[in-house]
């Protein structure tokens, strides 16, 4: 079952967050931007973990909500100058949540393999909406005005030099808030009920849980969080394109989850950093990054079954296992 890091784990994660926050003290802008990318993808993968690791739903259409969140900035641009982030972020969340609610309401009428196919197909439909209709601003993407830091006419103008640092810290803050929120959610009975659905959906229904609405709630919330991630992507890059909604991004988020560890809430964060790091290294060695990505996946699915969060030192693994249940009666 999915676990949340305990006291030591949380301490280690906090230390890692501080290390990321300290990057601007010594790293060049390139690495700050790379870290920002990893942070945004970590939000995205974390939002998908709510479906995969918590509720037990494997969706291949999650990138659509990421893209809708990013395009929210572009759509707001139609109303004039750069919107305040205090407006664009809630708008992104709302749009992504609405899209996820509509897709989820239909897709959750199916299960398993068919759920995968339906989410993928509806994700592709949203891809076409931004790819082919005037709504999206073109198949090749469009530059967007970065949401501003303004409130009641006061604006904090960020200089070009400061921007990588500011975006890094902002993205870090959003990721930490998202992680903390999900950790809290898992402690509520809503979170426990979702975990119960993953363990045994049929039993949850017969115990009196209307699992359809619980799953739809999780799907909508996960979509809204993906919208947050997409918004932060658009704000960091100042560019959005239909490719953000493409289904290979959903598959890559699943890869981050598996890479980091399916069994831990923080797994996708580790996975996202590993994914971005490996991608960067591969990009420096070869132009054929997809080859590297494909081979890495093969290694993970064939060998590294519990992800990075599941790696244990050999000495720890030899600790005595909990005593097995006494063999009393045979059926």
């Amino acid at each position: 079952m999915l676990t949340v890091a305990g006291r030591n784990g949380t301490f280690a994660l906090g230390a890692a967050a501080l290390a990321v926050a300290a990057l601007p003290l010594f790293a060049e802008a390139y690495y700050l931007e790379l870290a920002s990318t990893a942070l945004v993808l970590a939000m995205f993968a974390l939002s998908l973990q709510l479906l995969v690791g918590v509720t037990g739903l494997v969706s291949l259409g999650h990138a659509a909500f990421f893209g809708v969140g990013a395009y929210a900035i572009h759509l707001l641009g139609a109303f004039g100058a750069a919107p305040s982030v205090l407006l664009s972020l809630p708008a992104a969340v709302l749009l992504a949540a609405l899209a996820a609610f509509a897709v989820g309401a239909l897709a959750l009428r199916t299960r398993g393999f068919f759920f995968l196919m339906t989410t993928l197909a509806f994700g592709q439909m949203l891809f076409f909406v931004f790819h082919d209709t005037p709504l999206g601003g073109g198949a090749d993407g469009v530059f967007v005005a970065r949401p501003s830091f303004s409130l009641f006419g006061l604006e904090w103008v960020v200089s070009r030099q400061d921007r990588p640092t500011v975006m890094l810290l902002l993205n870090l803050g959003v990721l930490v808030a998202m992680y903390a929120g999900l950790a809290l959610l898992l402690r509520t009975m809503f979170g426990r009920a979702l975990l119960g659905i993953r363990a045994n959906e049929h039993r949850m229904r017969s115990m009196g849980f209307d699992t359809y609405w619980l799953q739809l709630g999780a799907f909508t919330l996960a979509g809204a969080l993906a919208g947050v991630a997409g918004h932060m992507w658009g704000m960091t890059q100042a560019f959005v394109s239909p490719e953000l909604l493409a289904w290979h991004r959903s598959a890559e988020a699943l890869l981050m989850i598996l890479l980091g560890g399916l069994g831990a809430l923080h797994g996708p964060i580790l996975g996202a950093f590993a994914f971005v790091g490996l991608g960067d290294i591969a990009g420096q060695i070869t132009e054929r990054q997809r080859l590297v990505e494909g081979l890495v996946i093969l290694v993970v699915v064939l060998g590294l079954r519990h992800g990075i969060a599941g790696i244990r030192l050999p000495a720890l693994r030899r600790l005595p296992a909990p005593a097995p249940a006494a063999k009393e009666a045979a059926p």
């Binding site: 598959a251 399916l262 997809r290 080859l291 494909g294 993970v300």
Partner: peptide, 19 residues
């Protein structure tokens, strides 16, 4: 294996075939 593993295995094959 779980759907997640199947999805990623076959996604890897797509990448390898295309490459």
């Amino acid at each position: 294996r779980e759907h997640l593993d199947q999805v990623l295995l076959t996604f890897a094959l797509i990448l390898l075939f295309e490459e």
